[in-house]
Structure formats: C-alpha cells, structure tokens
C-alpha cells in the first residue's frame, strides 16, 4: 500500500511561448516504511518533485495522493494542515528559527497544530532524543554545529509523527562526518520506527542508505534501483577481506 503517489505530475515554469518543464508526467509511488532516494543532475526537477509531493507548491497538472487524499485539490489552509500533521520536511539549509531553542524549534509544528506548550515541548524532547540531541535541547541554533542543527531539523520533522518525511539534500551543506551522522539518524527512523522517507541527494554515499534509488533527468524518471537487503553480508566480507598476497 502506498503512502504517497504522484500521478502524471507536471510543473511548468516560464511563459506560454517558452515553457520550461521542471517536471513532466512524473509517476512515482512510495510505500509505507520505504526509504527512497531521488538522484539526478542539478536542475533535473528533484526539488520540484519533492515540493509538489509535500504540498509546498501546486502542480501545473497531475495529482499527488497522500494515502487516499488528493492534496493538489486542497485549499491553502487544508494544505497547511496536511503539512503540519502528515508531512515532515528537512531542508538543505536547516531553517531553524534563530530566536528559539532547539526544543522550541522542534515543538513548533505541534504548537502550530494547537498542542498545548508543555505537551508540545515534552514530545519535542522525545524527538530530540531520537536524533541523539537531547543534551542540546536548550541551545539556540547558533550554538549548534551544522550536523546538530540538521538533526534538530529532523527532530522537528519527526515531532508530529508524520506519515512521510521529505528531505531535500539534507546533507548538502554538511561535511562528510556530519553527513554520515545525519543520514544514519534518518536510516534509523526508517528501521526502528517504520518511518517513510523520501530524500533528494547528490551524494552516492547518502543514496546508498536508501531502499530504492530513483534517478530523475529532465523532469522524469530515467532509472530506478531497488537495493536488496544485506543478506549477502558474508559475501562482502569475503570479497573485501581477501587480501591478495604476493611474495616480495
């Protein structure tokens, strides 16, 4: 059963005479508990696809189904509610509110949804724990490293227990070590909590964590890679571990 599905999703920019298609008839579906990575050259429409899936923008044509609801026909307020309750976003620039502490930032979607502040903060603490940031709860974003900020942003996306998390190059702004931390946290939410996750990335190392990689070019899917589970672990071990010896 899919959590999210796009149907002939098309987004056109530019004038009528010189249209630029950011997306062209994109059909793609994400299963529950699946971790999908979207890859593709810059300008291929990855972000556009993600934004449309998350109801941040409206398609020129086509539909986005979130479970059984078509979010492309909703009005702005209903769409806001969907974003608040069913979708968690993680962006390249962590986009935390500078004047709020980490835990307050994480609680923001809950508070926007009308959860009383004490409960919201409590749930935010839990989300922070999930990303190993419980000890930084009362720090302002400026007091956190990039990786920590991004993990706080992930906690914010997790806080409302959304149906799906959409992440647009979440490691694009991080060094490789922080990037590994962040993607490990994301993978863990999938493994441990059955979170559904769609992630746009340029980085093969990040994409390699996914269960499936979708390759996009010029606004459409050009290839897809379902990655098999790690049951061949012993095989790798053997292959990697066989050190070629020579006399010498």
């Amino acid at each position: 059963m899919f959590i999210l599905k796009t149907e002939s999703l098309t987004k056109k920019y530019g004038s009528e005479s010189q249209p630029i298609y950011a997306l062209r008839d994109l059909n793609m579906s994400v299963e529950a508990g699946e971790f999908v990575a979207i890859m593709g050259p810059s300008g291929s429409g990855k972000s556009t696809a993600l934004y449309l899936m998350g109801g941040l923008d409206r398609p020129t044509s086509g539909h986005v189904w979130l479970r059984d609801k078509d979010i492309t026909t909703m009005n702005d307020d209903a769409l806001s509610k969907v974003r608040r309750e069913s979708i968690g976003f993680v962006f390249q620039f962590f986009n935390l509110i500078p004047v709020l502490t980490a835990v307050e930032n994480v609680a923001m979607p809950l508070i926007l949804d009308g959860v009383p502040r004490p409960q919201a903060l409590e749930r935010a603490e839990a989300a922070l724990k999930q990303v190993d940031l419980a000890n930084r709860a009362s720090h302002r974003p400026s007091e956190l490293s990039g990786g920590q900020q991004q993990r706080a942003a992930i906690a914010r996306a997790l806080a409302a227990k959304p149906a799906i998390i959409l992440a647009d190059e979440p490691t694009g702004n991080l060094d490789s070590r922080s990037s590994d931390e962040v993607v490990a946290v994301l993978r863990r939410t999938v493994d441990d909590f059955g979170q559904t996750l769609v992630l746009v990335t340029h980085d093969p190392r990040v994409a390699a964590h996914a269960d499936r990689i979708v390759f996009i070019k010029d606004g459409n899917i050009v290839d897809e890679n379902r990655l098999k589970g790690a049951d061949r672990a012993e095989q790798i071990r053997e292959k990697l571990g066989r050190v070629a010896m020579s006399e010498g």
């Binding site: 974003r83 608040r84 962006f91 986009n95 914010r156």
Partner: peptide, 16 residues
C-alpha cells in the same frame, strides 16, 4: 522571509 517560509512549510497557515 526564510523563517516565515519555513514555518509555512512545516504547516503554519497564512492566518497564523
């Protein structure tokens, strides 16, 4: 602009 856009992205309504 960024902060506000982000709040919108995580579900704040126009009214909020």
């Amino acid at each position: 602009r960024r902060d506000l856009g982000m709040l919108r992205a995580i579900g704040a309504t126009r009214g909020q």
